[in-house]
Amino acid sequence: MERLQFRFDGGSRVAAASDACLVGVVASGNLEVLIEPAPQTDACAIEIRTAANGFGDVWQAVMTDFFERHRVGGIRISINDAGATPAIVSLRLDQAIEEFTRRDPA
């Protein structure tokens, strides 16, 4: 297992529909993404626990891409990964941030 941490500044705070949201499952080739509001910071802080060692550069690229596309801040993202491909990681992150920011019609 490897633990990785990333932090991106300069994003805009997102209005969260809920306190936190979880997407995905820690199954082989899959991962879970937990997004929580982090009111005390404007940054997007990401913490990853991955089963595949030695892929720090790939994670860096995928996370940077995610941040560039969404420019979100004031959140904490936590990931438990069981060997997902970069495509799956991006997909889950997009699903998670969409769910996190989706406002209830009410």
Partner: peptide, 18 residues
């Protein structure tokens, strides 16, 4: 968000779930 992770899986260096 309560992060009730398994300490035993962590000890074995295996994936955990929140």
């Amino acid at each position: 968000t309560a992060r009730t992770l398994s300490p035993h899986l962590k000890a074995l260096d295996l994936p955990v779930a929140f």
